[in-house]
C-alpha cells in the first residue's frame, strides 16, 4: 500500500473510531474541543526543565485512551510522524545547553533534561489531538465550530475538503499507479510529467467543484447553508467533565503533584 493508500486508510479508520457509540464519543464536542486546547496550552507551558511536572500531564491522554477503548499500538504509530522534528530541535539543547544538574548524585547536562521534556511535551500534544479526533467526528467538531461562530461558509468549505479528501487521494493513487505501470523502475514522477500529472488532477478537481456547485445550486443553495442544526444541549455531565479536567490541569500545573504524591508515598513507607 502506497502513501496515498495509507492516508485513505487512516481517514477511514479515524471516521470509524469517531462513529463508535461510546461514553467518551458522546461528550459534547465543544467540551472536548475546549479541553483539548486547554490541555495543549497547559502542557506546553511547563518550564523547560520540569520533567516530572510535564510527565504528570500524561494522566489525561492516558485516561481517555482507556475510557475510549483505543488501541495503544495504533496510537503509538501516530507518534512516529511527528517526533523526529521535535527531537531534532531537542538535539540542539543537548549540544548548546552546557549547564550541569545533579540528579540523585549523578551530574548530567541540563540539555538532556530539557530534551526529554520536549520529547514528553511533543508526545502528549500529539496524543491529545489524536484523542480528540478519534472520539469526535468531523461533523460534530464542525458543529462545535458553528457554536463558536466560525463563518458558515468556512465550515462548509472545510467539510467539503473532508468529503473529497479520500476521493481525490484515491484519484492520485490511480494516476500514480497508472504512471508506474507504464514506467517501471521509476520511483516517482519524472520531470517531464510533473505538470501534466498534477495539472490533470487540478483540472479534474475544478470540474468536480463545478459539479458540486451545480448540485448545491439545484437543491436551493444560496451561499448560506448552516451545516448541522443538531440540537445537542450541554448536559450536566458534560459540564462536570469539563470542570473536573479543567481543575485537574490547573492543579497539576500549579503544584508539583507528582512530587507531593511521591513524598507522601515515601512518608508512608518509612
Amino acid at each position: 500500500m502506497g502513501q496515498t493508500g495509507k492516508a485513505v486508510h487512516e481517514v477511514h479508520r479515524l471516521e470509524q473510531l469517531a462513529a463508535r457509540d461510546q461514553w467518551v464519543n458522546r461528550i459534547h464536542p465543544l467540551v472536548k474541543f475546549f479541553l483539548t486546547v486547554g490541555y495543549l496550552a497547559v502542557t506546553v507551558s511547563f518550564p523547560a526543565y520540569d520533567l516530572a511536572g510535564t510527565a504528570g500531564m500524561a494522566v489525561y491522554p492516558l485516561a481517555l485512551l482507556i475510557l475510549a477503548d483505543l488501541s495503544f499500538r495504533d496510537t503509538g504509530k501516530r507518534l512516529r510522524l511527528v517526533l523526529p522534528f521535535v527531537l531534532l530541535i531537542g538535539l540542539g539543547n543537548l549540544f548548546f545547553d552546557r549547564n550541569l544538574v545533579q540528579i540523585g548524585g549523578f551530574t548530567i547536562r541540563a540539555g538532556v533534561v530539557s530534551m526529554a521534556v520536549l520529547f514528553v511535551k511533543g508526545t502528549l500534544c500529539v496524543l491529545a489531538s489524536y484523542l480528540l479526533i478519534a472520539t469526535t467526528s468531523m461533523e460534530k467538531l464542525c458543529y462545535a465550530f458553528g457554536i463558536l461562530h466560525f463563518p458558515k461558509a468556512v465550515i462548509t468549505q472545510f467539510l467539503l475538503t473532508w468529503r473529497y479528501l479520500t476521493l481525490l487521494l484515491e484519484e492520485v493513487n490511480r494516476m500514480t499507479d497508472a504512471y508506474a505501470l507504464r514506467a517501471p523502475g521509476q520511483k516517482g514522477i519524472r520531470m517531464k510529467a510533473w505538470g501534466s500529472l498534477a495539472g490533470q488532477l487540478l483540472l479534474r478537481s475544478m470540474d468536480r467543484a463545478d459539479g458540486v456547485y451545480e448540485s448545491m445550486l439545484l437543491r436551493g443553495y444560496r451561499g448560506d447553508y448552516a451545516y448541522i442544526r443538531e440540537t445537542a444541549p450541554l448536559r450536566g455531565r458534560d459540564a462536570a467533565w469539563l470542570l473536573f479536567w479543567g481543575a485537574l490541569f490547573v492543579l497539576f500545573r500549579r503544584f508539583p503533584v507528582l512530587y507531593l504524591a511521591g513524598a507522601g508515598i515515601g512518608g508512608l513507607l518509612s
Partner: peptide, 16 residues
Amino acid sequence: DSQLFLNTVYEDVAFA
C-alpha cells in the same frame, strides 16, 4: 460523488 457532497446520507438528503 458530485451530487452527494456532505458526509452522511441523512445530512445530504436534508440539504434541500
